[in-house]
């Protein structure tokens, strides 16, 4: 009887078949993979680049915004910006919205972030509630506050009357209108600042705080000398985002006051809309748009530059 070596040999473990080496898809490889960005680029070109170029071209014409014909006017629309008292006044109001909203949102956003960074009960819910308005359309937010501040049926006036006071025309003056618009915008977007600062706070290594405590730093000193410097990147991000948002403010103004009385609560964005559609001066309106673009770009670069310098100095 012969014994087959195979019968007596101990069973061998057969290594599993190695997976075939992964090959990069032949469909998209090399430089061709960049072509996948083409749809996005096309969208960007159609909705951003083309309108930008078109807007600049319109700004050198006297187009009324709908007719087939227009005439080139050179730089007349840009020169008009320097002599237009309305534009100058509205630009100042726009700066109030931009800078005011930025300041309010940094203070509130940082305060809320510090409060909700600790181990508080219900902090998740609180964060969600504060961030929720960011998800709401500014038109809806504006309408909500319009219903609160409205003269005849507004909730605030109902409260005033219930306490024996007289109804107030909250939105009928420039001071009242600008303050309310600024407050509504700040309240709506304070959640963005809070989230940015929270991310910044949670990125600070606890060792820094512990070292400061060992060195005898009190809470105020720790905040000023440790936390604030380390929050500089978050601060820069939040300031730039809020500044751009405030300078472009449109929807809330449109709903609350329509830019009135007169143009006293208008921003450059609402003035652009009125000039384009109502005053039928698309050329001048486009020039305002280009000017606003450069104003925002310059301010953003300056703010970014200043904040980066400060950060480098502290490092």
């Amino acid at each position: 009887m012969t014994t087959d070596v195979l019968d007596t040999a101990p069973p061998r473990s057969v290594p599993p078949a190695a997976p075939p080496p992964r090959r990069r898809s032949g469909r998209f490889r090399g430089a061709s993979i960049n072509l996948l960005a083409l749809p996005a680029l096309l969208l960007f070109a159609v909705f951003t680049i083309y309108p930008l170029i078109s807007g600049v071209a319109i700004s050198f014409s006297d187009w009324d915004g709908y007719s087939a014909d227009s005439n080139p006017v050179g730089g007349a629309n840009y020169l008009r910006l320097f002599t237009d008292d309305t534009f100058r006044a509205v630009l100042i109001t726009t700066f109030i919205y931009g800078i005011g909203s930025t300041v309010v949102q940094q203070v509130l956003g940082l305060g809320l972030a510090l409060a909700l960074d600790g181990k508080l009960a219900g902090r998740g819910v609180a964060r969600a509630i504060i961030y929720l308005p960011v998800l709401v359309s500014p038109i809806v937010m504006g309408t909500f506050y319009y219903l609160l501040f409205q003269y005849n049926t507004g909730a605030f006036n109902d409260v005033v009357v219930a306490f024996g006071g007289e109804r107030q025309a909250w939105l009928s003056t420039q001071g009242g209108g600008v303050t309310i618009i600024l407050a509504v915008n700040s309240i709506q977007f304070v959640g963005t600042s809070m989230i940015i600062y929270l991310a910044g706070l949670q990125g600070i290594a606890p060792e820094y705080i512990e070292a400061a405590i060992l060195d005898g730093a009190n809470a105020g000193q720790r905040f000023r000398h440790v936390v604030l410097p380390l929050l500089q990147p978050a601060f820069a991000t939040s300031v730039v985002l809020n500044l751009i948002g405030g300078l472009k403010l449109f929807d809330v103004i449109q709903v609350l006051t329509g830019g009135g009385p007169g143009t006293s609560t208008s921003s450059v964005s609402t003035l652009i809309g009125r000039t384009y559609f109502d005053a039928q001066s698309a050329g001048y309106s486009a020039a305002m748009g280009v000017a606003l673009f450069f104003i925002i770009a310059v301010l953003t670069i300056l703010a970014n530059g200043a904040l980066n310098r400060r950060r480098l100095e502290q490092q």
Partner: peptide, 20 residues
Amino acid sequence: PNGMWDSVVTTADGVLAAQS
């Protein structure tokens, strides 16, 4: 001229609101 309606409204609005 065509397009003046907005100016009519905003200037009258400014006067009525004592802003101008």
